[in-house]
């Protein structure tokens, strides 16, 4: 059972990783919490669902879900963040909250509040692997998460866009002096962040095969904890923290503490904040936490 539980934990962790990274991109660069990310994740799920139900192949559905969520991410950046970039950090956070309310309402009106379910013929196939069994989608979820994290890491480290992002994260004013267009960079950050949340949405809606308009709320909060634990300064932090929290959750449930699960997760997050505010993998950073 333990092995099977580890597989469960890894899958959940992969989803957490993607959403946490989505939070972390905006957080690390602009120090704001984009509270609409949970809803971008949900929206990605609905898009993926609609496409798969229309027999579009998975890779295309995945890309479309990512593109859709990225697009809304850009809209959020243009309306909710850009005009308020000089305001105290709480203000853009709350305007993203406005988007989260709107998205929930729109999706409820379009797709209904009842869970949308994938027809059984599109259901996951399982591969027996010795004493355990692994779903095809589980493997896809984990693989896509790893590939996406690697791509983001590559993008940040090796490309000029990535260098610009890191420069703005380090010091916005200096970056601008060096000729980096901060506006384009923040737009890019919101777009990638949206795409990651959308990818996570498509993957989970196919893996769990049921989705509701409110699925982003609690998952979003958990992902914030994962982001904190992984740290916002290193992309790989999320890849470590996601499975860590996923497995921690699964093990608390497996060994008799399903009621204590949330206490464990948020307790862990507070502990990390107090002992290693930069996160498990975060390097030293002096200006942690801007003024609110």
């Amino acid at each position: 059972m333990l092995l099977q539980q580890l597989v469960n934990g890894l899958t959940l962790g992969a989803v957490y990783t993607l959403i946490a990274l989505s939070f972390s991109l905006v957080m690390g660069i602009l120090s704001i919490l984009n509270l609409a990310i949970g809803e971008l994740f949900m929206l990605g799920g609905y898009l993926g669902f609609a496409l798969i139900a229309a027999h579009v192949p998975l890779p295309i559905a995945l890309v479309a879900g990512m593109a859709g969520a990225a697009l809304i991410g850009i809209v959020i950046e243009k309306i909710a963040y850009q005009p308020l970039r000089d305001a105290p950090l709480i203000t853009p956070m709350l305007s993203t909250l406005g988007f989260s309310i709107i998205l929930q309402n729109v999706v409820t009106n379009v797709w209904g509040s009842d869970p949308l379910q994938l027809p059984p013929e599109l259901f996951d196939t399982r591969l027996p692997l010795g004493p355990i069994s692994v779903g095809m989608m589980q493997l896809v979820v984990i693989a896509v998460a790893v590939v996406l994290v690697a791509s983001v890491a590559f993008l940040l480290q090796k490309t000029s866009a990535g260098r610009a992002l890191r420069a703005v994260a380090e010091n916005r004013d200096v970056a601008r002096l060096l000729g980096v267009s901060a506006g384009r960079v923040t737009m890019l950050a919101f777009a990638i962040s949206g795409a990651l949340a959308g990818a996570a949405g498509v993957l989970i809606s196919l893996h769990y095969a049921a989705i509701t308009p409110y699925i982003g709320v609690d998952t979003g909060l958990k992902a914030i904890a994962v982001m904190v634990i992984g740290g916002t300064t290193r992309v790989w932090g999320a890849l470590l923290a996601g499975p860590l929290i996923g497995i921690a959750e699964v093990l608390t449930i497996a060994y008799g503490g399903s009621q204590a699960r949330d206490l464990v997760v948020y307790g862990l997050m507070i502990l990390i904040l107090l002992l290693r505010p930069q996160g498990l993998l975060g390097g030293a950073r002096t200006d942690i936490g801007q003024r609110v």
């Binding site: 950090l89 909060l221 904190v228 206490l263 936490g289």
Partner: peptide, 20 residues
Amino acid sequence: RLKGIYLAMATLGFGEMVRS
């Protein structure tokens, strides 16, 4: 020990713990 948004997230964790 914490400032800004990091403090906000720690208090968020506190609130969720109380609820749980």
